[in-house]
């Protein structure tokens, strides 16, 4: 017993000693930290931002642009600590990629004037000159996709597998419903009330298809469940937030991709000029943040359809179409 005990104590001592070896200091590079409630590969909101950062990184080289992230920060208290800690560690730009992080940014940002913060989908920058806020105008894409879906549907029945009735999922769906209704299609929506319930998502898609809707859309990291059903039963899927084409190359007609690079570029360019925030950005068709990515590689798509979508997007840009119904 005593022998075992002393071995254990020795081990503890060794571990403790090793733990106190200092880490090496960091080099001078542009450092970005991203805090998100889901994961970098969620096929939706978080992935769109992470991939945009990757694009920027590949432009300037990995040695000049460092990206770190905290996933699964659905607990706001944890996220808050992560945001503060990144700022403390001297990151140049801290991205709080979740609408629930607003209060945290509001409280932390004033303590770190040398750090730029970005908050999305956020509502305002609280008058702070080191906070930028960005938001996806999902309803614009929703409207166009509603029209596209109505055009490709043979029986005028569309299904939406929304996970939740909140955030930009909700605004997308509202836009989609409006667009579809104006094109004379009938939309039914299911909510599974969970971002992660893949199984129920697939059951929801199956139910839509049982009731005759062959053209489906939806958001969140649980959509692979729905896409797999669409693939199996040979329906049509319209992806949102990130490119869903790899999930079902034969069935995903089009994806609405959030491309944050223009906005990120602007934020970073301004930072080099010494402006750390105080601005709000909208991801829209106009600034190229909302992109319609057609699956032309695997499917033959009618050019008329593509033109129609471009035309609608242009009309939204020109203000001729209101994506959301009045009131």
């Amino acid at each position: 017993m005593s022998k075992k005990f002393s071995i254990m104590i020795l081990f503890v001592c060794v571990v403790m000693t090793l733990l106190s070896v200092p880490v090496l200091a960091e080099d001078e590079v542009f450092q970005v930290a991203m805090v998100m409630p889901s994961k970098i590969n969620d096929y939706s909101f978080s992935q769109s931002m992470y991939e945009a950062l990757k694009v920027l990184q590949s432009e300037v080289g990995e040695e000049n642009f460092e990206i770190v992230y905290s996933e699964d920060m659905f607990n706001v208290a944890d996220a808050r600590e992560a945001i503060r800690d990144y700022a403390d560690m001297g990151f140049d730009l801290v991205i709080a990629h979740g609408s629930q992080y607003g209060t945290s940014i509001q409280e932390i940002a004033p303590d770190y004037p040398e750090t730029a913060f970005a908050w999305g989908n956020g509502t305002d920058f609280f008058g702070l000159d080191n906070v930028s806020v960005y938001q996806a105008r999902a309803e614009q894409g929703g409207y166009v996709f509603g029209q596209i879906a109505a055009a490709v549907s043979e029986n005028g029945k569309l299904g939406v597998c929304g996970p939740v009735e909140s955030g930009d999922a909700k605004t997308y769906i509202d836009g989609f419903k409006n667009g579809a209704a104006e094109a004379g299609a009938e939309v039914s929506v299911t909510y599974t009330s969970s971002f992660s319930d893949v199984s129920l998502m697939s059951a929801a898609a199956e139910t839509h298809m049982d009731e005759g809707a062959m053209v489906l859309t939806g958001t969140s990291q649980s959509i692979p469940g729905a896409v797999s059903v669409v693939k199996e039963r040979d329906g049509v899927w319209l992806g949102v937030q990130w490119d869903t084409i790899p999930l079902a190359p034969e069935n995903v007609l089009v994806s609405l991709v959030y491309d944050w690079t223009p906005i990120l570029n602007e934020i970073i360019t301004k930072m080099t000029e010494g402006i750390y925030g105080g601005a709000a950005y909208d991801l829209t068709f106009e600034n190229g943040g909302l992109q319609i990515l057609w699956n032309t590689e695997n499917l033959e798509i009618d050019q008329e359809l593509i033109d129609m979508a471009d035309d609608l997007a242009q009309k939204i840009v020109d203000g001729e179409i209101e994506p959301l119904p009045a009131g």
């Binding site: 629930q100 607003g102 989908n121 956020g122 509502t123 305002d124 938001q135 939740v164 909140s166 909700k170």
Partner: peptide
């Protein structure tokens, strides 16, 4: 809780701004 946070108890500001975060 999801029901309340997305409906009756949602922050009025979230509806106003159109962001509709469930809080």
């Amino acid at each position: 809780s999801n029901f309340l946070l997305r409906g009756p108890m949602i922050d009025p500001h979230e509806i106003e701004m159109g962001t509709r975060a469930a809080q």
